[in-house]
């Protein structure tokens, strides 16, 4: 069964470059952009899956980190675009159009935000944890709306895509390749993390926190570290998402965005390494196909989600692999 799940994972993962490659041959750049969008959303959900799937932390505020990553990109790139330094006091900090620098800032900023939010929210559990993370996410959302320096409610447009050494990132397939490589690296790292003593202890803490304490581990610390790594990955996805759209807006912080990440994970399979990838791909395909059928396309997605929750508890991957319980 594990072998079958491995084959399914590989097929789902390779479907992304297969679609992008086919679109390149057929000269369909929009489809490449769709595949890139799916890969970025998958990356965001892979981040959340560490907290939600492995740690059992149902965070309804992960859009906060997605938005922080997005605004890290927007703020740095807009200053580079306007040639106005970001900070111009006794120390001068310029904006930048360099993707690696933007990613680093996005990861560090979202990690610090996750540390602060996690340190407070992880003192609660269950529905209180869901509510407190939701509240933090909404705080960021309303802050972004009322921040006129960076577009307020209208958001912030960036005219040119940021640079990555050796690539022309405006060419869709090159940008896709970059995003896909990051997704592959993060998935590899997540796989290693889940199998490490830290990942196992986090998994164990989800199953029985008291028992974990009696073997000398602290569930709070395990969960906080997981929450910070999780937030940092979602932040990185936010920076890439903003770069894909060349636009950031407060909607990146919205609770609907957090909800979508959870939907990706549930659709694909909670706690499965490739679950978020399957879920995000399925969601983007449904979004693309169903939005042409009806403007109320989310109703159909809702119905599918309902069916998955009721009849396919292991999500898409669990159903295909014939195993409801995840074990990556």
């Amino acid at each position: 069964m594990i072998r079958r799940e491995g084959i399914i994972n590989t097929l789902i993962f390779l479907s992304l470059p297969a679609v992008a490659g086919a679109a390149l041959l057929l000269d369909e750049p929009f489809t490449i952009t769709l595949a890139t969008r799916a890969a970025i959303l998958a990356l965001a959900a892979v981040g959340l899956n560490l907290a939600l799937g492995l740690g059992g932390l149902v965070s309804l505020g992960h859009a906060a980190f997605f938005g922080i990553g997005g605004y890290a990109m927007g703020i740095l790139a807009s200053h580079a675009q306007s040639y106005v330094p970001l900070i111009d006091t006794w120390i001068v900090i310029e904006g930048t159009k360099s993707m690696p620098v933007i990613w680093l800032v996005a990861v560090i900023a979202s990690a610090f935000a996750a540390l602060a939010i996690g340190a407070l929210s992880l003192r609660t559990s269950g529905v209180y944890f869901i509510m407190i993370t939701l509240a933090f996410g909404q705080m960021f959302y309303y802050f972004a709306i009322s921040w006129p320096a960076y577009g307020g409610e209208d958001g912030l447009s960036i005219y040119v895509r940021n640079d990555f050494p050796g690539l022309n990132t405006l060419v869709p397939i090159q940008f896709f390749g970059l995003v896909f490589t990051i997704l592959a690296l993060v998935l590899w790292a997540m796989g290693r993390l889940a199998a490490s003593p830290f990942g196992l202890a986090l998994n164990a803490a989800r199953q029985n926190a008291e028992r974990v304490e009696t073997v000398g581990l602290t569930p709070f610390r395990l969960r906080l570290v997981a929450f910070v790594i999780s937030g940092a990955i979602t932040g990185l996805a936010g920076a890439l998402f903003a770069d894909l759209n060349r636009f950031v807006s407060p909607s990146m912080f919205s609770w609907q965005m957090s909800g979508e990440f959870i939907v990706f994970i549930v659709l694909g399979g909670i706690g499965r390494l490739f679950g978020p990838v399957a879920g995000a791909c399925l969601f983007v395909v449904l979004e693309h196909m169903l939005s042409g059928v009806s403007e109320f396309w989310l109703i159909y997605v809702g119905a599918i989600l309902l069916l998955v929750v009721l009849f396919a508890r292991g999500g898409l991957i669990g159903t295909l692999a014939g195993r409801a319980v995840a074990h990556d």
């Binding site: 199998a195 003593p197 196992l200 202890a201 998994n203 164990a204 199953q207 029985n208 028992r211 974990v212 009696t214 073997v215 000398g216 581990l217 319980v325 995840a326 074990h327």
Partner: peptide, 24 residues
Amino acid sequence: GLVPEGRRCFPNLTVYENLIAAAR
């Protein structure tokens, strides 16, 4: 070190993983 009543192993981990999760 405690071996609790009712054993309470971590059900979703393998034997090896149960052992190394808590190893010092």
